[in-house]
Design a protein around this nucleic acid. Structure first.
Lengths: 217, 217, 217, 217
DNA sequence: CATGAATGAGGTTTCATTCAT
DNA sequence: TATGAATGAAACCTCATTCAT
């Protein structure tokens, strides 16, 4: 199912058959739901167990501690959410002239992350909430950001500045403004006001336009 | 002290003398610190007590419950953080032609909120974290936003669109893009990367310029 | 192998071929090791299973409960450790004048038990530790002691007192002093300080001499 | 009360008034009883709590962990049980010619430790049982033994060997035989067979005589 | 006002044991 | 015979809150 594609990521084997019992899946499903709704600390393992229709001990057979359950949920999305799009998909393509313009790149980026988050909004909410309090998540987040996002964006921006498409703002500021608008869109859309009557296509286009106006030469 | 001006807000009496014992102040100080660092749920009242050099019972003499302590910390900043700037300062002034341009308004807004947050970053962090899980905070936030920010911004934007200064984007989108950039700046500056070597004046100016490029007619 | 002679005792068939699977042997081996190192209560069956390379359920296929596993380990050594030496070997021999002197008997006893414990120190440690808390072991121990050791020793001591070789201490006291020295030697040697640089032959001889000085007429 | 003198030792203040609530005393009393009867691992904190007529949380207000409770019980007796008698009372006195003979010293030692254990048998049982499994206890025990008992005994034995009162056995062996008999007596008397019809005065005298026969020149 | 011992409900975790495969 | 996922009771421990002093 498309909806539960994240299960694959969490289990870690994309297509290989890997024993994942029905109960284990239900534990993950409920844990994500509850962590997102009420926060990690405010969710008890006994609650997860009963909502998943499972004995409490069963949770601890699969995850040694409650925190390990949290990390099992959050880590794959963290990695997939930040790392690959940049490196694999974009950077190569951009320098292979796949993206003629920065605007095309931006549009692709927004659409791509939008699709990614559609089915992962709750996990992303957990990630953002708990990053503040768990060093394991925080460290991963910082490492991925500096090694992937920041480095690659720096190159891309330099590339398009060289081509004369972008204003010569300081790179850090460009990244900040750009990411702020992108993340702001996604967070508003999926976390703060998921129920609002968004016309997503229009919002994406307007956001791209807004960013471009601010950055283009 | 300027640094501890929030104490006044929390106590609720701006200049009148109101008995605020030394111990009570220390409880608040420590609670803010710990809630911001480790989260409300991960901070125990006994920990607050011992770090504040106070008996465990003393906290409950001033605040009936732990949650009441949280709300005592968060509510004044929530109110002051959102409400007054709009109503008192801006709206009147704008229609009194105090702000000739939207850009001036934007610059004032950013600088004003920047100043406000300088000494209240930890409280703001608590506010953002806990709004997700406490209906009391959430409701306040939503009410303030719709009654103040949203309403007033709608008027202001209409005003400057009429004057031909702003592009005719849908108002909701304009507000979203604008606030996203402003909040993104403040959150990045004070919460995510408070230690970074920001040149604040430049960042403010660039942010204003960025927003203006995206919105002006 | 000499080292694993206890396996025979535990299985219960000395020379008959009795199906003892490799897995069962490994369970026993690991259980003895862990019970001796960390105590019965502090050793979990799952730990035994994993260290023995066996599924958790497999242990319970051979031993209905964890306690049954303990008793299976401890009982044969308990019986063999106390009972036979007295009855079969000694008493008969002594009255058959095999032992001319109490000193010869003592020397034989010490050497014999010393040999017996060489390969069974861990089991003996378990026995001593757990006798205090498990009535099954305790009862066996008491029964064996009163029926075998105490009764037979009484006779032997009387015999050598009659022959004028032993001082006329109260029998109970003689047994206490004698056993205290023997058990003290063995426990020190095998359990408390097994790593110490003992010259066993010398220690045995000195211990015999020490006891004899104290007891001889 | 004489019976509860150990309470003082555990609290740590001999005569100074130190807040020790009634409940705390009851927790200790019950914990000692249960640990001695059933073993540390087989005694649950909830059981201690209910038998002491106290809420379970109360235990953890005084002792952060169950192990801390164990150590609080065992450490003072460990220290007092081994250390002072040797150093303070004996060694000085011996070389001050207080003890004319090794026999006098032995008699004093036995009587003194006998008195000490009268009211502390359960604690001593716990100590012996748990030393095997808790490194904290084990380390303390080893340290005290080598620094106090072993060192001082070595001097004392050399002293009396010089005076021609003792056989020239190797010192280690002399210590082993002597302690074995002393500890054997105390353990038999207080732990293995506390209910037996002992005539303590006689047993002490016989034990002294036994040891002396074995060791005197 | 302030204290801190006491509470007890509820949290996470462990573990012997069962049972379908 | 062997497996290992599942169980649930019970273990240890935390913590907001109360109350006598």
């Amino acid at each position: 199912m498309d909806e539960k594609q994240w299960i694959m990521e969490i289990i870690g084997q994309t297509d290989k058959e890997y024993k994942i019992t029905d109960k284990q899946a239900r534990i993950l499903e409920v844990a994500i739901q509850e962590f997102a709704d009420k926060g990690y600390s405010n969710t008890s393992t006994s609650e997860i167990a009963s909502k998943a229709g499972v004995a409490e001990g069963t949770i601890f057979r699969h995850y040694k501690t409650k925190k390990e359950l949290l990390l099992a949920i959050v880590t794959p999305t963290l990695t997939k959410g930040i790392a690959p799009i940049i490196e694999r998909t974009c950077v190569k393509d951009i320098f292979n002239k796949e993206y003629e313009s920065f605007e095309d790149f931006l549009r692709f980026l927004l659409n791509n992350r939008y699709q990614f988050l559609r089915s992962r909004a709750p996990i992303m909410k957990i990630l953002l909430q708990e990053a503040a309090f768990h060093d394991e998540i925080n460290a991963d987040l910082k490492r991925l950001f500096t090694n992937r996002v920041y480095q690659e964006f720096t190159k891309i921006i330099a590339h398009f500045q060289d081509k004369g498409q972008l204003k010569i703002f300081p790179t850090d500021t460009v990244i900040r403004l750009m990411l702020t608008s992108i993340v702001g869109f996604l967070v508003t859309r999926f976390i703060i006001l998921p129920g609002y009557k968004w016309d997503d296509a229009v919002e994406v286009e307007n956001t791209v336009a807004f960013i471009m106006s601010g950055l283009k030469a």
